[in-house]
Amino acid sequence: MLLYVTLGATDLERSGRFYDAALATLGIERRVTEDDELGYAYPSDTRCRLWVLTPYDGKPASFGNGSMVTLEAPSRAAVASFHAAALANGGADEGAPGLRPFHEHFYACYVRDPDGNKLSAVCERAE
């Protein structure tokens, strides 16, 4: 359903360190590095689905209240690794890894990237 998602960044070098570390735990890799954008994809994907970029209008990056990008994790261990890597690379905790009440196997964590964008990693498998 989604073609791609973009997230604004104030400092791409800082954001690159955060996203490279956090997304690697989910098997997602950086494929594009430009002066104004970074592109990420799964190894099996033919195109980048997540872009981190400086805003086109030249204004400072900001986050949307109520906005969140949720990434699929292959295991509960990957959710925990994502959370730890995010915090170790400038992210902020918004909810430690654990089961949530959305359904029986909804295991998630929540973080903010260095610019305040909210991210979640979720495993919906029984493990």
Rank of each mutant, 00 (worst) to 15 (best):
A21F: 10
A21V: 09
A21M: 10
A21R: 11
A21L: 11
A22C: 09
A22E: 01
L23C: 00
L23H: 00
T25P: 02
T25R: 15
T25H: 06
T25G: 01
L26C: 01
L26H: 01
G27V: 09
R30V: 10
R31D: 10
R31P: 04
R31K: 09
R31G: 13
V32I: 15
T33A: 14
T33L: 13
T33Q: 14
D35M: 04
D35P: 06
D35L: 08
D35Q: 12
D35K: 12
D36F: 12
E37H: 13
L38T: 12
L38H: 15
G39N: 09
A41R: 14
A41L: 03
A41Q: 07
P43K: 03
P43Q: 05
S44N: 13
S44K: 14
D45M: 12
T46M: 13
C48N: 15
C48S: 15
R49N: 12
R49E: 15
R49C: 12
L50M: 10
L50F: 01
W51M: 06
V52T: 00
L53A: 15
L53H: 13
L53S: 14
T54K: 15
P55I: 04
Y56R: 13
Y56P: 04
G58F: 10
K59Y: 08
P60H: 04
A61F: 00
A61N: 00
S62A: 13
S62H: 14
F63P: 02
N65K: 11
N65T: 11
G66F: 01
S67M: 10
M68Y: 06
V69G: 00
L71H: 00
E72I: 01
A73P: 04
A73I: 03
A73V: 03
P74T: 08
P74C: 03
P74I: 05
P74R: 10
P74G: 15
S75E: 01
S75V: 00
A77W: 07
A77C: 09
V79S: 08
A80P: 04
A80R: 13
F82T: 11
F82R: 11
H83A: 00
H83R: 02
A85V: 02
A85W: 02
L87M: 14
A88Y: 01
A88I: 00
A88D: 08
N89G: 01
G90P: 06
G91A: 11
G91Y: 09
A92C: 05
A92G: 06
D93Y: 04
D93Q: 03
E94F: 11
G95Q: 09
A96L: 05
A96M: 06
P97H: 09
P97A: 08
G98I: 07
L99D: 13
P101Y: 06
P101C: 02
P101L: 03
F102K: 06
E104A: 14
E104Y: 06
E104F: 05
F106P: 08
F106N: 14
F106L: 08
Y107H: 13
A108L: 02
C109L: 08
C109W: 07
C109T: 15
V111M: 04
V111A: 05
V111Y: 03
R112I: 07
R112A: 14
P114Q: 11
P114V: 06
D115F: 00
G116W: 09
G116C: 04
N117C: 02
N117T: 02
K118Q: 07
K118A: 02
L119K: 00
S120M: 07
A121L: 12
V122R: 04
C123E: 03
C123D: 07
E124S: 15
E124K: 13
E124P: 04
R125M: 12
R125V: 13
A126P: 07
